[in-house]
Every structure is written in C-alpha cells, then in structure tokens.
C-alpha cells in the first residue's frame, strides 16, 4: 500500500532537493533502467521518456504534505523545486525502503542538468539498439536539441559510470 509513493519520498530525502519536474522525471527513469525497482510506467514523449503516473503520484504526495513543491519564475518560465517534508518521516517509517544504499548514484544524477539527463534517458530508452543505431535515433528524435556527437558520447560514458557506481553500491 503506497509503497511506490514511499520510494519517491525516500529518493527526495536522499537527494536533498531536486530542481525541475523534467529532472525528477528523468532521474527516476534512469534509476529504473539501473534496475532500481520504481514501478511507474514510462512512454516516449516529445522531451524523452515521461511518466504520467509519476507526475500524478508527485501531485498526490504534495497534496498529502509529504513532498514540498515550490514554484519559481525563472527567465519567463516556471521551475519547480521538490523536497521531502518533516511529516514524510513518519510516513516513511511504515515502509522497509532503503534508498540510502544508492545515495551516491542519486547524487550523481542530481548533479547533472536536465538537458543532459534528457539525453541520457533517451539513449537508455533505445538500449535495445546498437551503439550506432542509438546515435542515429537520438539525432532523429532530438533534432531540435542539437546534441553533438561529443555530447552523445559523453552521455554513453556517463551511463557506463553510473552503472559501475550502481554495482558498487548495491
């Protein structure tokens, strides 16, 4: 019961703060691809893998007072900051969730910007394709973002490093 909600709260507790809805979406997708058992269903959208289920779950957590959402105006657009609240501690105490074991992985993802995480998650979305096919696909679906070959290779290296990090911590 609400265990999937608790995992999100626990993630935020470990991250300290996540700035941006897109960033939070991509972090959880990447963690899923690292075999961390988040259950939210993702589909490919204009800006990469996106989960409506996750968006609604975060909304539920905000309404329950377990997650704090702060809306800020930044250069003509809105940005949201997410943190877990004090009351969430009692909520989390009902579950046997140990997100602290992957804290370094969470921090590593949280240190990246959302545009880079969008690229990383897009590459992971096509991970059943070959290296070359992925590059081709990313350039097709992310035409507007203008990712260079260097950006894409950097994302590949990042994926290797986080998978290594995940093996170490798990």
């Amino acid at each position: 019961m609400l265990e999937d909600h608790a995992k999100i709260v626990s993630l935020l507790e470990q991250a300290g703060e996540v700035v941006g809805r897109k960033k939070l979406q991509k972090i959880i997708y990447i963690l899923k691809k690292c075999d961390i058992p988040f259950q939210e269903k993702y589909h490919f959208h204009f800006f990469g893998p996106y989960s409506e289920e996750l968006s609604l779950r975060i909304e539920e957590l905000c309404n329950l007072g377990f997650v704090n959402e702060v809306k800020e105006t930044k250069g003509g657009y809105y940005q949201y900051r997410y943190t877990s609240t004090e009351t969430s501690k009692e909520f989390l105490s009902h579950f046997d969730i140990h997100m602290e074991t992957i804290e370094p992985l969470i921090q590593e993802l949280n240190n990246q910007n959302s545009k880079f995480l969008e690229l990383v998650s897009t590459i992971l979305y096509f991970d059943d394709l070959s290296h070359e096919e992925i590059i081709e696909k990313v350039q097709v679906v992310k035409k507007k973002q203008n990712y260079s070959l260097d950006d894409i290779e950097e994302a590949f290296s990042f994926i290797t490093s986080i998978k290594r990090l995940n093996t170490k911590v798990s």
Binding site: M1, L2, H5, G20, R21, K22, Q25, H45, F46, F47, Y50, E52, E53, S55, L56, R57, E59, E60, Y77, Y78, Q79, Y80
Partner: peptide, 23 residues
C-alpha cells in the same frame, strides 16, 4: 483491504507542459 489512488487510473487530464514535461 485495498487503497486505490488517482495515480492508478490510466487516464489523464490536461497539463500545460510546464518545464517541458509534456507538449
């Protein structure tokens, strides 16, 4: 004894796409 949440429902409402989450 089952808790059912709105996020369990497979349908969605309109989102204005703030922060490029959805077009």
């Amino acid at each position: 004894l089952v808790v059912d949440s709105s996020s369990d429902c497979p349908y969605d409402l309109y989102r204005p796409g703030e922060e490029e989450e959805k077009l």
